[in-house]
Design a protein around this nucleic acid. Sequence first.
DNA 1: GTGAAAGCGCTAACAA
DNA 2: TTGTTAGCGCTTTCAC
Lengths: 343, 343
Amino acid sequence: MAVTVRDVAKAAGVSASTVSRSLSLPDMVDPATRERVQRMADHLGYRPNRAARGLITGRTGNIGLILPDLANPFFPSVVKGIQKQAHQSDYSVFVADTDEDPGAEIGLVRALAKQVDGIILCSPRMSPPELREAAAVAQVVLVNRRSGTIPAVLVDSADGMRQIVEHLGGLGHRRIGYVAGPRSSWSNRQRVRGLRAAVGPAQVELVELGNFSPTFEGGVSAVEAALLADVTAVVGYNDLVALGICSRLATRGITVPDQLSVVGIDDIPTASMVQPALTTLSIPKDSAGRAAIDLLLQLLGEPGSRTPPHRQLPTQLLVRHTTAVVSSSSATRPPGRRRTARR
Amino acid sequence: MAVTVRDVAKAAGVSASTVSRSLSLPDMVDPATRERVQRMADHLGYRPNRAARGLITGRTGNIGLILPDLANPFFPSVVKGIQKQAHQSDYSVFVADTDEDPGAEIGLVRALAKQVDGIILCSPRMSPPELREAAAVAQVVLVNRRSGTIPAVLVDSADGMRQIVEHLGGLGHRRIGYVAGPRSSWSNRQRVRGLRAAVGPAQVELVELGNFSPTFEGGVSAVEAALLADVTAVVGYNDLVALGICSRLATRGITVPDQLSVVGIDDIPTASMVQPALTTLSIPKDSAGRAAIDLLLQLLGEPGSRTPPHRQLPTQLLVRHTTAVVSSSSATRPPGRRRTARR
DNA sequence: GTGAAAGCGCTAACAA
DNA sequence: TTGTTAGCGCTTTCAC
């Protein structure tokens, strides 16, 4: 069997308690004995049994991470940020993917609640009551969603949308389309709101093209509507959607950005792998992950702490190959043609 | 506090053991009491504490998954397969990403070993001795790597390479380049071996272009060598590399597949999002994940079982937009030009 | 500063 | 079939 406190205790000629203390509360023990114990411990390859420790301390040393779809390249970056930070604090991370099924989320929370010290809900789609239940059964941190006073890591969507709209407006676009994501997505609602707010001051008209799946296929199927709407630029709910749009446009012989500009959101790796590279609003994914863990650990440290429960992250528009000064597929064509902006 | 066996026991008017049995070994208890207990249990919202259970049974109900890079789109698919299957058997999954650092792998194994019932090592880069250590401290299943008798889920690389070479050969290519991945990658060695074996019978010449990072950037930086090698087709270590190659070629004004054919391996989502879509050897990622869990659970069930410890999965070439019948950038140009194959 | 004892929540022997 | 007892490995009072 594995080596236990007792083994170390015996080897070091002390009691189990002293071993325990030497490792968890080093100051409470005589330097000499402490060192002897520690040497013995790693000589024997002792590794405390976390389950046993958890049983008594009530802490598991685990944290749970629930997200809609690992296959969406947005999430792995967040996960990596979370992982790295968590491991540094000696936490392990359970990852659970709901396969875009909002109904599965709360179930996973319930299942995980007892096994972890806290749960990070990434872009959850669950209802506010479910969210409340989640926050009641576990220490929860939200990412990409705001709900009441539940601690959350958010992104400044309003500003991001403003950046996009101003950029397009500055290039001469006067009528831009938005391919929305799922109605149940909080991010989507934020983005819609941000676009609506930004569009007036920039003297741009917004055409909402409907709700689509937040995937490449969603983008593909949105092209029809975009073309009918007679816009000169299209903003996708996320990069996957934008990429789908680009792909379908290419298939139909419409060149991006010359004939139609496309802008994505997220800055997933694929966005810079395609030709032409996609202009996109970059979200600091790593930072979001790290911020989420920091917030969570802080809350675990001081449960009642009234730290500002929301952390807001900035976004940055990456102008790449896309946007042009308009050459509408239809009537009114402002001055200037084909001007490609690059980063 | 949370509700425990005792609470349920009291509520149902039985002893703790009976509660325990009613839930884990239902047949050993009188149907009437069993039902009463079960009703009481979920009335009170009882959820067994897995840590406590684990302490006595020696089982944690967790499995660990270690992989080099979640950001490589190959892995999320595998993870998803593993997750789904694991959750079905009521296992939770710890995911750990080593950030492509082979040195970190064994450390993670050691750290995780005590917290899980088994570990799945995905495309591990660790040395054989480390691998042996890993298999000694935990029940291990390898994915994409074979080492001694450690149970593994593998892919039929030889056949896959044959498919690629025959396809290219059939289209008239006589000289193809291979952009290799890391020297320490077992998959890479398999692929090299497979290519070498396949190349003779197909009357094709193989030019090995050197080892590169298994990333988009790796592909980008491999183009130089590919161009110098005077080949008409290039096979990338994986899709990321192939995509990097395509991108750099486009930048240099070389069209794919007309002037140079590019083939990837893996079939990651991005491969079908670019224009032209990438021809690639598809690896059954989900299946690999599921197979790994199946194998692991089977081994956990019957530790000494001599089931065939290796499971081999087939691959399938997805011919998409890429390959053409050669139009070498240099001297000898066989008959036929620009013929695009589609799936 | 250190040891003895108790017990976290659960299951596995052993009795009854 | 059920209850009683013991103890998994650890931390934590509470004495000393």
